[in-house]
Design a protein around this nucleic acid. Sequence first.
DNA 1: AATTCCCGCCAGGTA
DNA 2: TACCTGGCGGGAATT
Length: 925
Amino acid sequence: MMPAMEVMNCLTLKDLGSSKKVKNDTTSHGKHAHKENIFVDRSRSTPMKNEPIDLSKQKGFTPERSPITPIKLIDKTQSEPWTPTANLKMLISAASPDIRDREKKKELFRPIENNAQDDGAPETVQAGADAVDDGTVDDYEKRPSRKQKSLGLLCQKFLARYPSYPLSTEKTTISLDEVAATLGVERRRIYDIVNVLESLHIVSRVAKNQYSWHGLHDLKQTLKNLHCLGTMQKYNEQIAFFQHKEGDSEHKVGGRKKDNMTFQSRHVLDLAEVDCHSASANSRKDKSLRIMSQKFVMLFLVSSTNIVTLEIAAKILIEESQDVTDQGKFKTKVRRLYDIANVLTSLGLIKKVHVTEERGRKPAFKWIGPTDFNALCSDQRVEVTPTTAFQGLHSVPSSQSQTSNPLQTFSRHAPFNAAHVPEEDRRTVSSEPSSPDGGSRDSGVSSDDLCTKKERQVAVCREETERNAKSRKPSPEKSRFAEDLSAATPFPVVFPVPGESESCLKSTQTTSPAPQSTMSHVPLQNGMLGHPTATADHRKPALLTSQPFVYLPSASVYMLYHNLRDSPATENLTNAGDCCRSDYDSWASPDRSSVASSAASPCSAGEDEEPAAKTRKTDLQEDALSLVLPKKHSKPTELNCLQQDSCLPAEQWGDHRQTRCHSPVIAEEQDLTKSYAFNGQKNMALHMDHSEPVHLKETFLQENMASIPQYLYVPSSACLNGFNFFLSANQSTGAVALSPSQLSPLNVPCVMVPSSSLSQFPFLCSPSIAGHLPTAPSTSATNVGSMNFNTPGMASATHLLIGAASMVASKTDESPSEPLQACSPVLGSEESSVKTGSPVCRGQPLAMKNLQQSSTPQTPKNIHRTQHETFFKTPGSFGSPISWRRSEGALRSSSSAQRRLQISGAGTEKHFTTVSLTELAVRVP
DNA sequence: AATTCCCGCCAGGTA
DNA sequence: TACCTGGCGGGAATT
């Protein structure tokens, strides 16, 4: 309750311009009653309850939910509404300054009422007050002043209904109808409030017309996350930019646009383009109040002064894709910002202030919410800041330099790392995944270094996140929080979702099917793996993030042209991915980071193993996609982004438009980021880092091609029920080529198909690639089109070969020894599939054949022996908890069944288990 | 006159 | 199809 009070107090009358109005809810209730809206609500079947407020407040009680809730007062004020508009009009007309004065006086006399609300007990009091007030003062009260109807006040009332810190055990459900009715407002208004609250994860949408109340448990963490994201987005730079601009010139609308464009073109456009966002028509979601709210908050969080003027905020928040020119747009944006500001004010996060500039006084808001997380994030900010070493390396937004003092910040960074980086993180950092050298590479400032640093920060953030996130329980419900957040930022992010314990990973991807421009910047698909909470998202395909692919036109088959085992390039890729990943994972739970580190260094795998309990934590995160990345890389890294638009629900893509793997930050850090985007169905998008000339990339690609062993990657988009296949194109080495450790980085739910098994299958192979595939089965190269995974028909029946060994272990909680068969039930279980969000499981039980048996070629023992050993030694935690975890995350989306399979396979040297091949067989001539 | 922002239309989305 | 969501901007209340 106290917290609640605090919050409430914050919004208090004083700070808000409107605060004065804040007055009693009580009175307002009566006032509201007269609204037409109320009536509307009534018409609804939803039972109205009236005074839930009190109840709810007391300990997580959910008014709406509790059947017990007496339907009482309703009638009093609302049921006997002022209904008649005439009446209302009359009152209104009557309303005059006098009335207003009276109201004010009234307020003065009962100033405390508001506060009372905050207390746990107040409700009751209020109710009583209401009754009294209404009875006595209704005449002048009837006519609610505009202030009384303000969104801020309404929000306060709304907040007063629920406990600030509800018990984790209880679930508070919010019925929009009921709330609207209770508060006497139109539902539309409730949406405004809820959307903002949702952006902060104070509530989350559970179902139609229903939200779940989470309270402020996650607020701090959310803010922290937003702060970090804001930093990454360089909002601070943007703010500075606009501030300076204003100083220089007048801002007419036209000028505004210009400025905006100028800045954005420099700093933001790339993001926009990257995310394809601008290209796509974008839905309302882009303009969603939730997203806007998050962005708005980010502005405050990154602002050095904690003050943001609406004008600047509007400019910054106007999407590039939008027509900034239009003054109307600007006005609209400002209107929305007011809406958001009102709610934030009610939350006690901001307060209205005015800033005086050369040109006069401007309305602004000051952040008065928690800021203690700044220390952490500020460090990160540093990391994000490009160092001189990176400048010019890439088309990093020039704005980067913006950071007040890069050097300074950077310098701060060092200490930060030393001081704050958790042991685990540190270890992670130091461990060099694929590189034997390990930390030796750290010398000098390089992209590697940067990455490392970034990783550290990320690790720290992650840790923080995890710390904060503990203790919640997973919720099956879909939360839009992460999505929104993701949308609010170009970075894929992982957020703890309230109610879902540790965290839900959110991956962000963006994109819309896209136009060239879109393709040019491929977002890293970071994780669309099913979000645990996002029931709707279960189909999200996992992404293969760290590997270069060769796209085979007209077929959803991609070839990994890197030698996954030995290629240094691979290492780099991995590392790069990791680095990049870390950015995305900032919010990810610590587990992830640790996992990554483990993966990075096999050597440390053993020590890194985490307790099962901890591991379990990650379960929640499984959905997230994860790029498993080893930590450092000394060379330019390559980030591959695989886009599987076709597999993703449009919604997802749309929602995540803003997320891009090519965020400037990432790009910077990556130094040389190469992304190859593939549109599985349509185009081949060889996406390169913008900084790099295409020809270079091609060269790169070809070079790598030479280092075959290749794998054909068949994205789930190919209608394989969410499974991604890695088909060995290399006969000799067989599918085994991918060691678990190697595969794990891929984080792709996938099935390893032994080349031997597939040898008979004709493969689609890009002619261009064919030449580079000496070892590839002749059939592969020659029979293009034979194997068309895209065939719709395929979708329904999927049979897979699963290389258990290649898969990473699943959570520790699951018994390693668990028989593969266990999978069957799972697979067959609709329910389970739904829960896990696994496309695979859903509805289509896999035919499990010879689970134990493997048709698989034996993996050469010498290959990455160490890694294998590590991998197998600890089935439960897989040598590199990290790696397997990440994989797990990736896999989660696929299915629990899949995970199990993996596990079972983990303990054996057998690399492949045939789950079912029939469908593949279908493909076979 | 400028700032705030309520209000509700209406279109897209969803069940 | 009906209902849910929520973008949007007119225009009124306030400053």
